[in-house]
Each structure stands twice: as structure tokens, then as C-alpha cells.
Design a protein around this nucleic acid. Structure first.
Lengths: 331, 331
DNA sequence: CTGTTAGCGCCTTCAT
DNA sequence: ATGAAGGCGCTAACAG
């Protein structure tokens, strides 16, 4: 405990505590001479403002909460980790800390954490929600407590958000498959109701709307390795010559099945997956993917929440970032 | 801002603020009847204790800092993420929050963050250090501020720590390769001076001590994909029939090279890598790995730091967890 | 078994 | 251009 307080600094500098406070916070004019003396005294004593006291007095915590939904064995870990990095690095510059919390893709837990990270603890919350309908969250959200939704934007939400254009990303992927000459292109996805999942499917249906019996080419399973592994043979039997895999966990199962059974990619079947995870580069052949700028999303969300903190009541901002198709050897 | 304070609760319950405080903190006996009244009043008013005030008064923050070293493109992301999960879930049970911070494997940054997360902000720090010599950190560490080192334990450190027995993990891996009939077993590692890296190499040298010209079978590169990719052909040319890859990032490069060049695993070369990352299961053939219990490490570290907080001055505890060899199809 | 009260360290209004 | 002083909400010593 550095038990040096503002009073000690004031005494050493021969000024009042008010002046010291104002020097620290640049909150009113102080003559250069006095300011220098104060700064000197601060250094000499190695003064560090007391966080709790400051927070008590000013009702600001200089802390932001980030709630993310990751399963224990989920491949999306590194995705949210990248987001967290972006958030943390950006906020650090402005003197904010980041408290992280994991909802494990469980709405109950998410709501619990939302309450835990209330305005006593944080100045705002960045949330990758599990929820598909924003009204469900209303009860636990504090009016006017800054909130930025990230990655997923549920129905009924009109506040600040940062997300990725999943719809467009999907369309690009399908177009690419078509350009490569694939004709019977299927969709493999998970039965999640989160916004990113539904938008991917929307995009697929839209660009493939001319295709007869399109619904037969859409495979929906659980977001698990196992489910993907079971889904793969069905896809093959359906005579598809390409699949767009909308869920990364599902993709692990499908890809592994294909490799194991010697089904050659990209000849027998073309593949595009969502998310540029490391393993998509390491497998042979390396996979064509829709890359989501996770880190940048974090940066954006951090900036948004800072803006919101500094101007409650401003018009909400919905930032949408574009994904990038990375062409590799699976198409 | 829930502007209900202890005083409001006290008034509604018809008791003093002291009694309310003691009910909340269970810090002295209160008759069941009064306690009930207080609890009721708290609920009725939806009272939440003010974190800052409490922290100011009690000099406890109920917050723990976790500093981890992850590179932007590093495969170890999910490893540290798992650790973070273990930490967070455990501490949450005891009402603690976790502030995370990333040193990006940079000692300067690490030291900066150590200072940032001082005792004004946290009640203790869990640190996966980048540092190989603990004395370098002494300057920025506050005496008596609880500290638990995790994963890596530098020289000169004698405090609390949780780590994994890298030495033993390596020995198991080599034994397994020998059992499978491999004879010319090499070592591929990164030039890191952190404790985990050196212990793996120590283990290798120990169990292979009978092997002539052993040093020629040790390949050290940078912890990058590229470095691994360049290292792979060298390993092959050396006539090795198996490699133990001690660094996961390096492994990505080596494995990809082998796959690309049609070098068959496990026939032409056997492979064991450190860390049970998802991609090691997805590639074909799936890789035999030394699995580190990351989540459990986090749990242990959380428990250790709580113990330390509640009894400064107790004898330090060094917890060492055992890794597990997971046999798959690359050996 | 419970109440009274003095601060924790800081910011900020009011005063000069 | 600077000081004096009250109080943010809570805990814990002291008092009964």
C-alpha cells in the first residue's frame, strides 16, 4: 500500500489539496510554477492516486466489463480472445481496466454476470450476448449504464454495437464457390439462434434462391465436432460438390471425417468455412475461409464504449465490419 | 446508479448502519430477528453495497489481476484462455472479479502491467511471466502483495506457484516413442528462456543421455510457423525417425510441411507435440500430444491466491500438476 | 446484543 | 489563481 495521499503531496509542494487534485485531473487552471512544484512533489513521493477513493467520489470506476460466451472445448476461444485483446489494448491507453467474465453461452449466467458487473463495478459493459431477443435482458440491464454489444446483435436492440457482416461474408463465399465451378453447393450450420448464425443462413438462401429444392441442401446440426462428423456422410450422399460450413466447431467434425475417409478436397468436394482459425491453415489442404476481423472488432467496441461513457444520450452507433474471403486450397 | 445506501436500509429496518454492515459481512453476531429485518429491507430496497466505498474503507478490492503473455497470432491463445476460465470461475464463487491484461510476451509490458495492477486495484496477481530471472521483477513487485506465478516459474522465485511438470511430460513422450520402436528421436524446440521450454529440453537430454551425438538431434528455432516450416526438411535430412516438438507454434509449421510434402506420419516419421490443441485432433493423422491441464491450473492458482490473501506470511506453496500423454495416430 | 461516530482519500463547491 | 472544508458510502473501534 503506497500510503501517500494527496495531502502529503500538497504539504510538500506547499499548496492545498485542491490544487494537487486539479493538477492531476487538469480540471482547472494552475500556474505553471505551482503545477511544476506539485508534479515534482508527486514524483518525489512516488504518489499514486487512490483508486477506490477517486471512484467513490467521482462515481467512475475506470473499469469496463467484457462478457463473452465460450464453451470449455470450443474453437471460438481464440476468436473471443482476439476480441478481448483488442478491447484491452485500446482501453488501457485511456487508463481503463477490463474485467472479463464468461457466460459459457448460457443466458442465465450471462444475466447473472450482467448484474455483477453493474455500475458500481464498471463504467460500461461490452457484451457478446447469447440472447436472441434483447427484451429478455432488459430486466438486468441498468438504464444509462453504457453498453456495447459485440459480434452478436439480437432482435429488438437498437443501441451501440459492433458486428461483422455475416450476410455479406456468406454471399462472397458462395460466389467464390460458383466461380470455381461448383454447382451443387450446400450449407452446413448449427442450430443456434444467435444473430450471426441466422444471418449466414439468410445470406445463403438469398444468393441461392434460384436453386430448386434448396432446403434439401441445408444441413443443420449441433455446434459440435461429433455432429459435424455425422453430418459429413449425409452431405456426400446428397451429391453435393461443395459445402459452405457456417460454424467452426461443426467444421472440425466435417473436415476430419472427409480427411479420414480419403474424400479429396477440393476435387470431390469444395469447402469454405467461417473463421480463419489456425487449424484451417494447418490441415491439408488448407481451407478457404471467411476471415472475421476479431481484434479490430474489439478495438471498435472499446472506442464505442468510451464515446458512450463520455456522452450518454448521443445517438447509438452500429458499426459493421466487413469479413474477408481468404482463398486457399480447399476450393 | 442504485443510490440506496446502507443508511436507507438501516432506517427501513429500524437499526443502525453498523448492524446492517455486520449483517452483510457476517462480522459480528446479530440476533436472528434483526438480521431478518435487515435482509428484508435490503431486498425491498434492492440494495447493493457500494464497491468503491467498501474498498476505500477496507483496503480490499475483491479483484485479482491476471497477466498473460499471448502473441497476436499465437496458438497458445486458447491455452491461456483456458487458464483464465479456471481462474475466473473459481474466483467468482468467492465474490472476486478478474482483471486481465496481456504482456504479449514482452517483459517491459509485463512490468508496466504489474505496476498498473498494484494493491490499489487488486488484492493479488496471478502472473504467467515472460521473465526467466525473478530478480528482474523485484523492483515493480510490491512487498506483501499476494502473487502467484502460473505455468512458468523463473529462477530465483520461491513464492507460490502452479506449474506443469514439463520435465516429466517430455520423458513420458520420449518413452512412448521408444516403445513404438522409434530409435532416432529428435527434439524440436524454440529458443525461449522461459522455464517450461528449458525443462522440456532438460527432460529430453536426460532420458536420451545414452544416445551418441545427441546434440545433433536437437533443433532450436524461433517459436513461429515459418521457423517450423524451415526446420522440417532439416529434420528429415538428418535421418531422424521421430521428433518430439516442444513448442506448439513451431509444430504448426513442421506438421504442415510434412503434410504438404507427402511425408507419411507415423510411418516415415513419428511425432509427438506439446499441448492438446484442437488442431492436433483435426489434422490427419491426428497427433499424439502431451496434454497440459490448463483449466485446472487456473483453478489451482485461484485457490492459492485466495489462501495467500487470507494468510499473508504462510509458507509458500508450489503446486505441480502432471501432464497426460494422449496417444493418437502420429506415433 | 446493538448503536455512535470517526475517518478511509479524493473531488468539488464556495469563497476569496 | 488558489484554499478551506464537506461529504461520497462504508467499516470498525469504542461505547454501552
Amino acid at each position: 500500500m503506497s500510503n501517500i495521499k494527496i495531502k502529503d503531496v500538497a504539504e510538500l509542494a506547499g499548496v492545498s489539496t485542491a490544487t494537487v487534485s486539479h493538477v492531476i485531473n487538469k480540471t482547472r487552471y494552475v500556474s505553471e510554477k505551482t503545477a511544476d512544484r506539485v508534479l515534482h512533489a508527486m514524483q518525489q513521493l512516488n504518489y499514486r492516486p487512490n483508486h477506490a477513493a477517486r471512484s467513490l467520489r467521482s462515481t467512475k470506476t475506470y473499469t469496463i466489463g467484457f462478457i463473452m460466451p465460450v464453451h470449455k472445448e470450443d474453437t471460438s476461444k481464440s476468436f473471443f480472445m482476439s476480441i478481448a485483446e483488442g478491447i484491452e489494448e485500446t482501453l488501457k491507453k485511456y487508463g481503463y481496466h477490463v474485467i472479463v467474465s464468461n457466460s459459457k453461452e448460457d443466458l442465465e449466467l450471462e444475466m447473472e454476470q450482467l448484474q455483477l458487473l453493474n455500475d458500481q463495478i464498471t463504467d460500461g459493459i461490452i457484451l457478446a450476448t447469447t440472447c436472441n431477443d434483447f427484451h429478455k435482458l432488459k430486466d438486468v440491464l441498468m438504464e444509462d449504464h453504457p453498453l456495447v454489444l459485440i459480434d452478436r446483435v439480437p432482435n429488438g436492440y437498437a443501441g451501440d454495437s459492433v458486428s461483422i457482416d455475416s450476410y455479406e461474408g456468406t454471399i462472397q463465399a458462395i460466389k467464390h464457390l460458383k466461380n470455381r465451378g461448383y454447382r451443387r453447393i450446400g450449407y452446413a450450420g448449427a442450430d443456434l439462434s444467435i444473430s450471426t448464425a441466422t444471418k449466414r443462413l439468410d445470406g445463403f438462401r438469398h444468393i441461392q434462391q434460384e436453386v430448386p429444392n434448396l432446403e434439401d441442401m441445408i444441413f443443420i446440426g449441433k455446434p459440435t465436432y461429433k455432429s459435424g462428423y455425422k453430418m459429413a456422410p449425409q452431405i456426400i450422399q446428397h451429391g453435393l460438390d461443395a459445402v459452405f460450413i457456417a460454424n467452426n466447431v461443426l467444421a472440425t467434425g466435417i473436415v476430419h471425417y472427409l480427411a479420414e475417409h480419403g474424400i479429396s478436397i477440393p476435387e470431390e468436394i469444395g469447402i469454405v468455412t467461417f473463421d480463419n482459425f489456425e487449424w484451417t491453415q494447418i490441415v491439408s489442404p488448407s481451407l478457404t475461409v471467411v476471415d472475421q476481423p476479431a481484434y479490430e472488432m474489439g478495438v471498435e467496441a472499446a472506442n464505442l464504449i468510451l464515446d458512450r461513457i463520455h456522452s450518454i444520450g448521443k445517438k447509438p452507433v452500429q458499426t459493421v465490419l466487413q469479413p474477408t474471403l481468404i482463398k486457399r486450397n480447399s476450393t
